[in-house]
Each structure stands twice: as C-alpha cells, then as structure tokens.
Nucleic acid binder design. Structure first.
Length: 592
RNA sequence: GGAGUCGUAGCUCAAUUGGUUAGAGCACCGCCCUGUCACGGCGGGGGUUGCGGGUUCGAGUCCCGUCGACUCCGCCA
C-alpha cells in the first residue's frame, strides 16, 4: 500500500498536474449532492480534495459516506482551483486534488467534540487527549516544543555540552519538595525516590571531568498542582566546570536569542537587566518582579521618623520599615476593591493595608489625620502624588512590607487593567539571593536555593559568625514578565565548605554521611569548581505559545489532582503486587 | 488544609421575580442539492438541569449537604 507522496500542507501551484497520493483525516465535508469537497488534514496542514462524479464515479459514490475524522488515502491529480475560488487561509489554497481513488483506512465514530474550535471543557479534552492533540492549535504547541527543544540541544552542542542521562530511580533526601517513592522489590522495605532534579548526579559528572553537561530532564515533585506546576515536568538542566556566572549568563542569553528568533521572530536585547534580590524586593516586592509596568515601591520610613501614627511608629521602633506604593489614577477604587487589596496584603502577612485616596484636592483616608503638614508634603514629593492617585502603605518587617506591597502591586495592575502588550518581553536576572532562610515552623535554617549552593566569598565571615540570614549566595534566577523561567548557582566543590553548610542546615555528621556521603567523598578526589542552571522548559514553551497553562504544551498532562484522565492513572494496585513489593496499603477499597 | 468561580443536550451557551411541555447554534440521523471552504434547503432524534435532601401549590432558579473541574493561598531545597 502506497500511503502518500507528501503531507497535507505541502502542495503548491508548482505541483499542478502532478498525480499524487495523500493520507490524512477528514476535517470537513461539503457534499453538494454531485460534487463533494473534502478538507483532508494531517499535522502539517489541510488540502482541499474535490470528488467529481462525472470523472470518477466510484470514488465520488464512496465519498458520500465519509464523515469527520475518518482516515483515508486519496490519489488524484493536482489542479489549479477555479479562478476566484482560491483560499488564502490555507497554505495549499491555490490548488486542490481531484480524487480518482479513495481508500477508507479507518472509520471514526462521531467525535465527542469538534476539532476546529477551542473547547472549554478541559476534562473532556484530557479524557480524549489523542483527539484534542489533533486540533491545529495543540498540534502547533507540540511542534513548537519540538523546535525549541531542538534549538536548545543544538545550541548547547555547539557550546561543547554533552547530553548525558542520569537515573530516574534515585535516593530520597529530606530537603526540598516531597518525593515520589518507588518500592524496591529486591530490597524489601527500601524505596527509590524519583528525582526532583538531577542536581547531585550532574555535580558528580563534573567531578568525573565531563566538563559540560546538559539534559532535557524529567523532574518529579509530589506537591500540590497549579496552572504552571505539574507533578512531573521538564527542565533544561545545565552544568559546567571551570565556569563563572558571566559565562552562564552569556550562554543562556545567546540561547534565548536563538529561541525567540525562531519561535517569535523577534530579536531580544542582551545582556538582560540585572537586579539584586534586595533591590528587586525593595522596588517590586518580589524575587520575580514583573517589569512590564512601573508602580514601584518606595521606602518612606525617613519621612515618618517622628510620626504620631502609632502603627507606623511601632513598625519603625521594632526595626521594621514603612513602604508605600502610588497606584496612579486609582482613587476611583471601590470599597470592595480596597477590601480585596487588604485581603491580599493580609495573606502576605501584613496586619492591614493603610491607604490614601486623593480626590478633589483632598486626601481621603482614615489615617491622614495623624500626619503633619511636613510629612504630607514630603510624601507628596517622594511619591509624586497627584489628583486621582491612590497611595497604599505597608508598615511591618522589611520582608513582610515588601512582599505585601509586591502582591498588592500585581493585584492593582489587574484591577486597573493596566494594558500589557502580549509581545512585550521583560527579561531579568535576579542575583545575590540569600543563601539561607529561617523557617519559624521547623525552627531551623533551610537552603533558599539548594544545599549545594555556594555562598558569596565576601560573605564567608558572616557564615563563620553564624549570621546565616545575611549570607548571600552565588545564585541567580532568570525572570521573564514576572515568571521564574529558571535558576541556578555556582556550587560548592570543597568538602569542608559543604560540611559547614550541612551543619548550618542542622544535618548532623552521621546524617550527612548517610544522605550525602557520596558527594562529600567525591569532593575529596579533585572536584573542579562548577556551576550551572536549570530552565523550566514547560513554562518557557507555554510563554512562547501564549498559553496560560503548561498543560497546553504537554502532550499528556495531569489534572489538578495529579490524575491523567485518559488512562485513569493513578489506579489501585493489586494486593498481590503489593505483597511482592513488601508493602501494604492503609486504604480500604470498597470493591475489594 | 483554606478561599473563590463554575457545573443545563455530544459541544458552546440561553432560560425574566420561583410559574406552561427547559430553548438556540453547531454536531448527529433522513431526504434534496454539481464549485464549496461556517456550503445551502426541508424534516427528525437527542435532557435524571452533577448528585442527595429541604423550603414551596410549584425549584434549572432559593437553602443545606455532597461530588467534580478550574484559579489562587498554604506547599513547591
């Protein structure tokens, strides 16, 4: 059986008079009783096929029975369309195929949803994902993903990186996200963990002298899901020896130039803007600021040094700060919206959200009566206050004030419907992240990035002195339009320093040996300085495809509860299988 | 674990203040139709309004519960 000479998106006027064979799916039929038109679709496009009963009666009779999504092979002559009937919407719109032969390979039942339009019912799409992926929009996303991945592979290859696979069955570690566990049949009572990232293996590859490694790596984290979070997702994982932050930045910037050139036909400006973590928090209240609009946060503590307003005074007295945000032209805010914004601030840990509306030349606010004339003037000058503005305050610890106003800033932009050009690309490196953060809940210090991140050399003294909160890391995140696209760091390659960090994290020497002995030992056998980065491939592709959910750029994603609706995974295990694995379920299943 | 939005035909949606037999477009089935590309015309089938309970003379609509989806917070080294 000869199925095809070319795809359904290939024929042009230069092919006129050729006799060709095509295979594909019936996308549409327009049956006029006599002449019949069929749109034949495959992943590359659509070709119009015409059945003419006076020329090919057998094929035409059979064509009356065709229905959407039937799979067929067609042969015939390529002809120019009649003048005036060309279709500019189609790449093949100049020509059509006059079918002389039709073979029906597989009939389709009536599909549960149409292939042409956008479908709202995501459950249904996921249940029939193989049909959903036939929709040109989804086919386009999958094609884009392939192309971008190939560009990344080629680019890294050109830069001397080797693609190396690392194990999927790994070891459970206490730090970080919840692990997916896999029972080890051959070692009863023991479990593998699926890797949250290939972090330790890639560092060990550097010790091996592999020098430059990358992997399009599947990562697994058993945490709650979001529009941009799946339990398994893909990272472009990169590590290099004898490298520097500048080298990593240049590598990624060049790669993104190629990616955006191919996917968006745009030239992005490099080098990307850089902000320290501290500056990002101070100005935007976020470690992944959306720089597509202004509305920056200001520190107004100096103005209120001698304030009569108790809330401000007590914030300052306890070592905190007073931050303010000018929502330009938003004095029209409704009471309900103020409530919403207050809720947002409270969710971020603030005790409340003070505000001033400037309307009819008057400062309307429950707190303004506590302000002196000098304070008002200074505030007006620093925040450039004008008629119609809305001023919002955060008075708390530095971190809480920044975070609260950062979230308020995003919500205000949403409420104000600040217009954002969907082509706009605000790239940013956030650098000098803190190395450690104290968890009040666990009463211990945790790694902000991961425990293998190198502290900045100039902060070594702070680390030695136990001032963990002040130590900065050789870590960096790449941020685009308020979305974290990836992050990385220079790593620790010295046994002593790594031991010191583990100790700071509250991991005693015995536990260190048990959990990370392999790494500590490797660092005693000539470990090169190294560093790297990991990019979230799903997020990058969804951004390139203008999709708001990464589910739309993953062939077979899981829903909010981690279920894959097409196959029904996860599903109960047979008790016999569990016995072989030496495990028992604590859940009773009704049917058993 | 918490908050919000939603759930009506295969799909996308409508249904006034609680009021007749829950409608429309597309899809589907039948007949007709020789240049369409949202083909057209005539006719037809299709509903446990997610599920359970309550209020009421009467519930798609109001109340309570429950299930599910999505978005956000927590969580995500």
């Amino acid at each position: 059986m000869h199925y095809r000479d070319c795809s359904c998106g290939a024929l042009r006027s230069s092919d006129i008079s050729r006799h060709v064979t095509l295979s594909g799916w019936i996308a549409a039929r327009r049956d006029h009783g006599g002449v019949i038109f069929i749109d034949l679709r495959d992943r590359d496009g659509i070709t119009q096929v015409v059945f003419r009963p006076e020329l090919h009666p057998i094929a035409a009779t059979a064509a009356h029975t065709l229905r959407c999504e039937d799979v067929v092979t067609l042969s015939g002559q390529v002809v120019a369309r009649l003048p005036g009937t060309e279709n500019k919407e189609l790449s093949t719109g100049e020509v059509e195929l006059v079918a002389s032969e039709l073979v029906i390979l597989n009939r389709s039942e009536v599909p549960p949803f149409p292939m042409e339009e956008r479908i709202e019912n995501e459950d249904l799409r996921l249940k029939y994902r193989y049909l959903d992926l036939r929709r040109p929009e989804m086919t386009g996303n999958i094609r884009l993903r392939h192309r971008v991945t190939k560009i990344i592979r080629d680019d890294l290859d050109e830069h001397g990186f080797w693609e190396i696979e690392t194990p999927i069955l790994f070891k459970s570690t206490p730090e970080g996200a919840r692990d997916f566990l896999v029972p080890a049949r051959l070692v009863p009572g023991s479990f593998y963990a699926l890797p949250q990232a290939p972090q330790q293996y890639k560092q060990l590859l550097m010790v091996s002298g592999m020098d430059r490694y990358f992997q399009i790596a599947r990562c697994f984290r058993d945490e709650d899901l979001r529009a941009d979070r799946q339990p398994e997702f893909t990272q472009v994982d990169i590590e290099a020896s004898f490298t520097s932050r500048e080298e990593i930045f240049a590598l990624i910037e060049t790669m993104f130039q190629k990616v955006f050139r191919a996917a968006r036909c745009v030239e992005i400006q490099t080098p990307f803007l850089r902000l320290t973590y501290k500056e990002a928090m101070n100005r935007f209240g976020s470690d992944k600021p959306d720089m597509r609009f202004g509305m920056e946060i200001e520190d107004v503590g100096a103005i209120f040094e001698k304030t009569q307003f108790k809330v401000f005074q007590s914030a300052l007295d306890s070592g905190g700060v007073i931050k303010a945000l000018n929502a330009k032209g938003f004095a029209s805010v409704t009471t309900g919206q103020i409530e919403t914004l207050t809720e947002v601030a409270k969710n971020a840990g603030a005790k409340g959200l003070a505000f001033i509306k400037i309307e009819n030349g008057e400062w309307k606010s429950p707190i303004v009566k506590f302000f002196s004339e000098e304070e008002k003037q200074a505030l007006a000058a620093q925040l450039n206050i004008e008629e119609g503005d809305l001023i919002l305050f955060g008075a708390d610890t530095w971190e809480t004030s920044c975070t609260a106003l950062g979230r308020v800033r995003l919500r205000v932009a949403e409420l104000q419907k600040i217009p954002i050009d969907r082509e706009q690309l605000a790239f940013l490196w956030v650098i000098d992240m803190p190395l450690l953060a104290y968890s009040a809940e666990e009463k211990k210090w945790n790694a902000v990035h991961h425990p293998f991140t190198r502290p900045k050399a100039e902060d070594q003294a702070l680390l030695d002195a136990g001032k963990f909160g002040e130590v900065r890391a050789e870590a960096y995140d790449i941020v685009l339009n308020g979305m974290e696209l990836g992050g990385g760091s220079l790593r620790i390659h010295e046994n002593e320093l790594q031991t010191q960090i583990f100790k700071a994290l509250g991991i005693d020497p015995e536990k260190q040996e048990e959990l990370f002995g392999h790494l500590l030992k490797a660092f005693r056998y000539g470990a090169p300085p190294h560093g790297g980065i990991a990019l979230g491939l799903d997020r990058l592709i969804s951004l390139l495809a203008y999709e708001s959910s990464i589910r739309d750029v993953i062939a077979f994603p899981k829903n909010n509860r981690g279920m894959e609706l097409m196959t029904g995974a996860p599903s109960p295990a047979d008790p016999k299988d569990l016995r072989v694995l030496s495990i028992a379920s604590t859940v009773k299943i009704a049917s058993q």
